[in-house]
Amino acid sequence: MSHLILILSALAVAWFTRISWSRNEDSYPQRWQNALSKFLFGPLLLIMTAISIVCMGPQGEMVWRWEGWFSYGVAGAFLGYVGVSGLKLAFAGWRSWQQVRTYPQHTVHDRRIRLLNTPLVFSAQVGFWQPELVVSQGLLETLDADHLQAVLTHEDGHFYYRDTFWFFWLGWMRQFSYGLSNTEALWQELLLLREIRADQWAAQRVDFLLLAESLLTVVSTPLMHSESVCAAFSCTAPKNRLQERIEALLTEIHLPNQTYLYLLIWFLGSCLPLLLIPFHR
Rank of each mutant, 00 (worst) to 15 (best):
Q188F: 01
N257A: 14
I5Y: 07
E252D: 12
Q59T: 13
R65P: 05
Q258I: 07
P222M: 05
Y160Q: 12
V135A: 00
V82A: 12
L216Q: 15
Q59S: 14
Q99T: 12
I53A: 05
F70G: 04
E132W: 02
G93A: 10
S71I: 12
G269Y: 05
L193A: 08
C235E: 11
P58F: 09
L242G: 01
W97C: 05
M224A: 13
F41S: 01
H158S: 12
V82I: 14
R101L: 14
F39L: 05
S22W: 10
Q99H: 14
A10D: 03
W166F: 15
L44V: 09
H158T: 10
S270R: 08
L152S: 01
N24P: 01
L148W: 00
E155D: 10
Q258G: 11
Y103V: 04
M48S: 13
E184N: 13
G73P: 06
R112G: 08
V13H: 07
W201V: 08
P104M: 09
V135K: 00
L89R: 03
S96H: 13
S85Y: 00
A231K: 02
W66I: 06
L223P: 03
G57Q: 08
K239S: 13
L79V: 09
R65W: 07
T107R: 12
Q125A: 15
E244S: 06
G179M: 01
A231W: 04
E141Q: 14
F16R: 14
I19W: 14
G179L: 14
E195P: 01
I246D: 02
N24V: 06
P278L: 02
L242Y: 05
A10T: 07
I196Y: 07
F165M: 14
M1W: 09
Y81S: 03
A124F: 00
